[in-house]
Design a protein around this nucleic acid. Structure first.
Lengths: 114, 114
DNA sequence: GACACTATTCGGTAATACTATATACTAGTA
DNA sequence: TACTAGTATATAGTATTACCGAATAGTGTC
């Protein structure tokens, strides 16, 4: 799927929070998981801006560990504030997506909404 | 629901397209319909920036008509390009929302995705 | 006249995803 | 050794888009 950039705004951060909540992980791996999910055009740079934002907002704990496959990795885990933020994100998502699906499925009849 | 601004980016324009596709309407009325939908914090200014964008992209036809309740109204209808854009929007929405719901509903078990 | 409601326009701001590039570590290979 | 690919992080700059605030304007009511 091409050009879904704008539609990802405001949800990509929530997706990253969810992925981190599944267990300790790092930027490069998060990028790969997002691609496996279907967001094939997401690049490392995008994810790093998000993880750095999460750091700044104190939603994650950080631990740097060496890797045998390249440079050291920065592992993230959600802290209490991060888990709370994730819960808020899903509530917002449920609200917004339900409203949009409502709009989508309303049947048009003689120009009126029914 | 508060502070869903970022999550609306990229979908609000599609919602406006959908509302216009239901029949000739104008900015102020679109705003009210969005509020009825549940996006209570959407203000006129936001909708007008979207309708002007639709004009620039030649997705709508425009007709100015007098009103007995205030200044003249600018009525919009979708043209062929607008209908095509709306279809693309819903395809993108279906893709993105299905992927996000997939992420949401994957059950966590011992830190692994199943 | 003052106010409320309807209706549009526009300049400026904030948030966020993308682009492009730089840096660095490991392993394989010519 | 030099080169390449894969892994891994960082960051400056850009584009898009929703919001804020103010201005303007028409109609009806008090």
């Amino acid at each position: 799927m091409e050009n879904i950039t704008e539609m990802l705004k405001g949800v990509l951060e929530g997706c990253v929070l969810e992925i981190i909540s599944r267990g300790e992980t790092y930027g490069y791996e998060i990028t790969q998981q997002l691609r496996e999910l279907g967001f094939t055009d997401v690049v490392e740079g995008t994810v790093y801006t998000i993880t750095i934002r999460l750091e700044k907002h104190n939603l994650v704990d950080i631990e740097k560990k060496p890797s045998t496959m390249g440079p050291p990795r920065k592992f993230y885990t959600l802290n209490a504030a991060g888990r709370e933020q994730l819960e808020i994100f899903w509530k917002k998502w449920d609200f917004v997506s339900s409203k949009i699906n409502e709009l989508k499925t309303k049947i048009k009849l003689k120009g009126e909404l029914i």
